[in-house]
Amino acid sequence: MLVKTLMRMNITYYHRLLIRSISSKPAWDILTGICIERLPVVTPPLTEMQKKYKEFLLTVEFEKSMKSNHEIQHENDKKQAELFKAESQDVDIDAVNKVTAQDFEDAANEEYSKFKFGNLETDADKKGDKTSTERCLQRHLVLVTQRKLGNDSKTLLPQGHWQEGETLRQTAERIVKEQIGSELQIKFISNAPCGFYKYKYPSEMNGKVGAKIFFYYANYKSGNPTKSKVNWLTRKELDEMLPQKYSNAVKEFLIEETY
């Protein structure tokens, strides 16, 4: 039994070695791509179903609730006002003159209507400015840069070559500093790459057949890019702007938006 398992282990080990020796024959460039995502700031809009159910829960809660002091006071006020009209002798003069519940409610409503909530449509949204993180507050945004590949420039995630002696995570951190600037504060989520994409060069370059890109995922925290122009794109825009196959590889590890 033991010998058997040992043999099996040996076999799998050599199998792996074999795979590696075969696959490493054509040399590939190792690249690290960084997917920097700004998470939504504001909760997404409720769907039709969610709105309906919320309404339902609120009515049920109201039906089960007790009356509040405010409601009791409002009822008392009404009673007193009627007595006052009827010129009854039971009128409590003190109760009539003081601020009624209705007055309080009106004042509160007025204050509420004066308060201005932050606008969902920010300045960047109005101008169509894609370089700011202050846009599309309800959506996930991914940072992309323009890169020159050969003759034409393409919209890609920031990426760069792995250097000997680094781990891929270190490569990712270095590239962010080099290409985007060290003022951008981000948080890497893992030491492991979250996605993979490979493509072949049109012709062999420095003896390399193509490039294998390992994507790292990071969350945006604060700061602005200083070294290069970047765009923050929503999922839809990503789909349109990135090269098709590349986009598919990126979409593979991103959370899908349902609205």
Binding site: R16, I19, R20, S23, S24, W28, I30, L168, A192, P193, C194, G195, F196, K198, K212, F214, F215, E252, F253
Partner: peptide, 14 residues
């Protein structure tokens, strides 16, 4: 997606 990326990385360099 992550598993796949790790597998490809293993092929490239242990």
């Amino acid at each position: 997606a992550q598993r796949r990326a790790l597998d490809r990385l293993y092929e490239e360099s242990e």
